[in-house]
Design a protein around this nucleic acid. Structure first.
Lengths: 250, 250
DNA sequence: ATAAGACATATTGTATGACAAAAAATGACG
DNA sequence: CGTCATTTTTTGTCATACAATATGTCTTAT
């Protein structure tokens, strides 16, 4: 039942509970279960997924914890309105990109990066400890070592940005790392669909790194802004190309 | 067992499962269970709280969903490192302010507001629909109607800021509303401890509103920055006063 | 006929007990 | 002494039963 999706996501999903959580969560994000809808009863769901009710309940409780649903006796489990969803939850971010509006989400996430990361870089430039700077520098070295558009490159890229967020010393800003992660994964998925056109973002990353090493807040802010803008226009270009190739979309 | 805390939090906690979730979550944030620690086994915990194991498990699963713990067979349920916690989760935000580092968290949250909200106001100034502007204006009217430092005033204040976040049209930015909420609740709790000194933030709010109504992005950005800075310096002043009054603080 | 109240009903909430699976610790054997 | 099987502990899963809750219906009295 989940075979296709399982192949797409390499990491193991140990527990049955987890598989079901992701399946139902994705259904909600994909609009199979719409906001305001009442989910099938726990019994019906546990029948459908061939699991016991406790397992089903654990999954539903987790969905409720993320703000996706609201369970009440006699009423049932209702899908909450989108405004109530905790879009910054890592799982919800993942599921978002399985929905039909994935590109809309990408646009919004990019906008959020544009708000957060330049400022984070500026703060990091002022506060980063030597160890934190080292970690950012190592990530950059890793990016240089791996060819762009490879899985490994993405990992280092992510570490680079996450390292900056953590170097702000602000745990709340650091927690937005998941947002950046999903953005990078999306751009990777997209760019792997089209040949060539690697934007070569290394010089921009270097600018950010050197500014942070020099405790140059203003420079870090600007370099990061340029980096994100370029990355985003690269993605936009991809999408335009793809739309031109496939004129009959929807 | 939970009576003191129950009195402090007016809203009902329907299910036992929920009470336990909050109790254990708060213990983790308070450092009773430290990162790296293994929680007592499910059986031990369900005994302590006098609940069945399924209920205990549901609570633990929710904690795991928020990134606080990681359960594994034979190993147990380990408290994850703080960097792994999803600090933007509404519950974790709430529990944070029950910890001894509440004021540190407040500082960090304020910094995050300083990053997010001015930009959000600028975006909202460009994109807000008439209905969204109406909602912001109504919230402002509500703030004018209620005396500062009342529960009602806080509610309208929160709606004001949340309305701006939603008016960005960006669901991820809108989801940061919980961060602002916890900041407002904290400042309310703090200011209710000390008499007088209402900072009178109404004029600043009006500045933001009029800028948004005029689609003046730059004006909205600056007005919001001023608003947050003033609010924060008010809080700082409170804390200084209190520290002066209670010199023997650990 | 209408309105108020009691009751049936469906759904989530909680409890109990048992077994499966996994992984670490232990002990036996080469 | 090292390697492999065994034991053991903890979470993972299942099955079933009953309690609590809120909706909707149905009865009854005015």
């Amino acid at each position: 039942m989940l075979s296709k999706r399982d192949r797409a996501r390499p990491f193991v999903r140990r527990s049955i509970h987890n598989q079901i959580l992701h399946e139902v969560g994705e259904r909600i994000l994909r609009g199979v279960f719409m906001p305001g809808d009442i989910l099938p009863s726990e019994n019906a769901l546990s029948d459908e997924f061939k699991v016991s009710r406790p397992v089903m309940r654990e999954a539903i409780k987790v969905l409720a914890a993320k703000g996706l649903v609201d369970a009440r006796p006699k009423i049932g489990t209702r899908v909450r309105l989108r405004e109530q969803w905790n879009m910054l939850d890592p799982d919800i971010l993942t599921w978002s990109f399985a929905s039909r509006e994935a590109e809309q989400y990408a646009i919004h996430i990019s906008e959020m990066r544009r708000v957060l990361e330049p400022e984070a870089a500026a703060i990091a430039a002022l506060r980063a400890t030597p160890e934190q700077i080292d970690r950012i520098a190592e990530s950059f070295a890793g990016m240089e070592a791996c060819p762009e558009d490879t899985q490994e490159h993405i990992v280092h890229d992510l570490r680079f940005h996450q390292g900056i967020l953590e170097a702000t010393g602000n745990p709340f800003i650091a927690s937005t790392g998941h947002v950046i992660e999903s953005a990078l994964l999306f751009s990777f998925k997209l760019s792997s669909q089209i040949e060539g056109a690697c934007s070569d973002s290394l010089p921009r990353h270097r600018d950010v790194l050197t500014a942070i090493q020099a405790s140059d807040a203003e420079g870090a802010r600007r370099a990061m802004a340029v980096l994100i803008d370029e990355a985003w226009s690269g993605i936009e270009e991809f999408m335009r190309k793809r739309d031109a190739a496939l004129p009959a979309r929807h």
